[in-house]
Amino acid sequence: MAALLCIGVAACAKKQEVKPAPAPEQPAETAPAPTTGKYTPADLDTDACLRQRVVYFDFDKSEIKPEFQQIIACHAKYLQDRPEARMTLEGNADERGSREYNLGLGERRGNAVSSALQAAGGSASQLNVVSYGEERPVCREHNEACWSKNRRVEIVYTAK
């Protein structure tokens, strides 16, 4: 009986090595901008963050959603690293609202992205804002899923 008790105590006293779980990898869309090197024009096609060139908005809003802040930061760093780079911010709206209202909303959205890029280090001389309102939809169905795709600002590089 005493032997069994000793074996039981010894078995319970064993320490198990606990290995820390590996850190989860960040999705490619939110990969941080390079901190050591400078962006090059080739990075526009290879860097996961820079390939993201659309910022989506809520209905009737021009505030940038938090999930797009990293994209803004990447593009602002590119503008800092490449002073000769130029971009056009194309503001768009869904089909609801008058033509004039949607043109204004598209411009407000483009200006919001422009302001965010400047706040993150981009230069105003590198940015041009244009509004297409509801004139350039990427989806033509008449439902919320489609409208949400049309409420956007597209980042178009005109000089790399």
Rank of each mutant, 00 (worst) to 15 (best):
L50K: 04
S114N: 04
A124M: 07
E25R: 09
A48C: 00
N150H: 09
E135Y: 02
F68S: 11
D58S: 15
V18R: 06
L103D: 08
P20I: 05
V9C: 08
L44Y: 06
I155A: 07
E29T: 15
F68I: 04
A116R: 06
N128W: 09
V138A: 10
C49D: 03
E141Y: 12
K61W: 02
Q118E: 10
A21R: 04
M87H: 02
L89Q: 04
C74P: 09
A93K: 04
K160M: 11
A31Q: 14
N102L: 12
T30P: 00
K14V: 15
P41V: 05
T35D: 13
S148Y: 09
I71D: 04
V129A: 04
A145T: 12
C74V: 09
R140Q: 12
H142Y: 13
E67I: 11
N150I: 02
I7S: 10
T46Y: 04
E63K: 10
V129G: 01
K19A: 11
T158E: 08
T35S: 14
L4Y: 06
R151K: 11
V9N: 06
P20K: 07
N143F: 08
L127R: 02
N111V: 00
E100K: 12
L50N: 03
P20D: 08
E25H: 10
V138C: 06
I64M: 07
E95L: 13
K15G: 03
M1T: 09
F57Y: 15
H75Y: 07
G106A: 07
V55H: 04
G37P: 00
Q80C: 03
A23P: 01
A28F: 07
I72M: 11
L50S: 10
E100A: 14
N92G: 05
C12Y: 11
V138E: 12
R136G: 00
E144P: 03
T46E: 09
Q69H: 08
N111G: 00
A85R: 08
H142V: 11
A73W: 02
M87Y: 08
A145G: 15
A21N: 04
C6W: 06
A42Y: 01
P27K: 12
K149D: 07
N111P: 00
K65P: 01
I72W: 01
P137V: 06
Q126A: 06
A31F: 02
E29D: 14
A48K: 14
C12L: 15
A10C: 11
Q118T: 13
D43N: 11
G104Y: 02
T88F: 01
A13E: 05
V130R: 11
E141G: 09
F59R: 15
R86A: 05
